[in-house]
């Protein structure tokens, strides 16, 4: 109920853009589903755009059109939600998606990304994800990959660099 009031407050000036920072994190699943539905319905009706900030892949799948994945202060992958969630390209996104437990599947060991997010004061050289990356190459420790756009979206990873790594 309180979150509904907050949404009403946000909408009353008829904004063109709403920034929703973890709008459902403090809520139970059944209420969360209602808030997501409400937010989507209102946006459809008023034509407002939403930047949804969340760590919940389920909410992203239900709500967003496009998604940008961030790691250590930088965007590392952008694309349509269906593409990024079903066929993630950056090894970090792939690791994240694999580590989510799913109902109906019960593996012995959940795939996990070893290690932890680096401190922003001690970001690794090259690609910030390289110490944890299962596909780490030589170049990854030396050169930070830029966010390269293509037809599917954008990804910042040497695996997808247009020129072969030298």
């Amino acid at each position: 109920m309180r979150q509904r009031v907050v949404i009403a407050l946000a909408l009353c000036a008829e904004p063109r853009l709403i920034i929703a920072d973890e709008p459902t994190t403090a809520l139970d699943v059944s209420v969360q589903a209602q808030i997501i539905a409400l937010l989507r319905k209102l946006c459809k009706e008023t034509g407002a755009s939403v930047i949804l900030v969340t760590h919940d892949m389920g909410v992203i799948a239900e709500t967003a059109d496009r998604v940008a994945v961030m790691y250590a202060g930088r965007v590392i992958e952008v694309g349509a939600v269906a593409d990024v969630l079903r066929a993630p390209r950056h090894p970090y996104t792939a690791g994240l998606m694999a580590s989510i437990p799913r109902i109906g599947e019960k593996p012995d060991i959940l795939p996990q990304i070893d290690g932890a997010m680096p401190r922003l004061t001690a970001r690794p050289e090259g690609c910030a994800f390289n110490p944890r990356c299962p596909k780490q190459m030589d170049i990854c420790t030396r050169l930070r990959p830029g966010l390269v756009e293509d037809t599917q979206g954008a990804v910042a990873c040497h695996l997808f660099s247009k020129e072969p790594a030298t």
Binding site: S30, A33, G58, A61, L85, M97
Partner: peptide, 20 residues
Amino acid sequence: DTVPDISMSNRDIERPAGEV
């Protein structure tokens, strides 16, 4: 039914109403 579905297969289904 209320668990968000990351396979996105039933994005537009009606959500159950009500609170505890």
